[in-house]
Design a protein around this nucleic acid. Structure first.
Lengths: 135, 135
DNA sequence: GCTTGACCCTATAGCGGCTATAGACCGTAC
DNA sequence: GTACGGTCTATAGCCGCTATAGGGTCAAGC
């Protein structure tokens, strides 16, 4: 029975995923419904562990759960072209790069605003608020 | 009555905020409860418009609604030191810079992974999946 | 055998910041 | 009077979890 000797807490420790999150992944169909022990505990094998590790790695890379699902689906179809995986990755990279650009513009603006701080002044003549406010 | 001649749709158009969002801001206390017309329509004046513009500008700068609330509270207390406003701005800037760093690390990793794409190959020997997968 | 405590179970509600939908009412133009 | 757009309330949904309540299970120590 070496393939069904893991409890949910074991998966949790092994992958750094909270127990509730693992059950959530099961609920939304990312993880297969596991077997149950006599006492109704979920029992997992090494395949489930690998799958969960894959999911967590994808999440750490910023993929959405839907993208993870796509990657998981693809990974089980040996004959599909690798290209499809790269498309998902490239789309995600483009998204990340877009976010970086947005945040950099934001940071520039915030630095500009912050530089107007009126040292020991009061709100009454706060130029930060002026900079934010319209008009 | 020139101070109560705006309807919710006018505020929406003026600020680019969806009508439902304006009502949501009212519900969570960011916008004051407005007066009502004979036909039970919300009526706004220019102060409400300014306040909404301020909120939207803060949101565009990435402040959370709680931070916006703080800034709004501060802005109404003329005697408080300007410094307090700058603290909120600086904290937010630090947060944004942290996110940028995280996303840049992510982008590097995604580029590395994507560069391993196996051109015309199949999933069976997809090195992107290998790169993501554990082990 | 009984208690303690760590673990597990289900089910539900909440977070932020909206967005969408349903079903009704208002106001103006034709 | 009727068509159409705007507005109203109320409720549920989105993502990716997280928290809480109220139980059951299991191994160890007394």
């Amino acid at each position: 029975m070496q393939h069904h000797d893991l409890k949910i807490g074991d998966l949790s420790r092994e992958t750094g995923t909270k127990v509730v999150t693992i059950r959530y992944y099961e609920k939304i169909g990312l993880l297969p419904v596991p077997g149950r022990s006599a006492g109704n505990y979920r029992t997992y094998g090494s395949r489930a562990l690998d799958r969960l590790r894959f999911i967590r790695r994808c999440r750490a890379l910023g993929f959405s759960l839907d993208q993870v699902r796509e990657l998981l689906d693809l990974s089980s179809e040996d004959a599909r072209p690798c290209h499809e995986v790269d498309e998902i990755t490239a789309a995600h990279l483009a998204e990340v790069e877009g976010k970086i650009a947005d945040l950099q513009a934001l940071a520039r603006e915030l630095r500009r605003i912050s530089s107007r701080c009126n040292g020991g002044g009061t709100i009454a003549n706060c130029r930060i608020l002026d900079a934010i406010a319209p008009g």
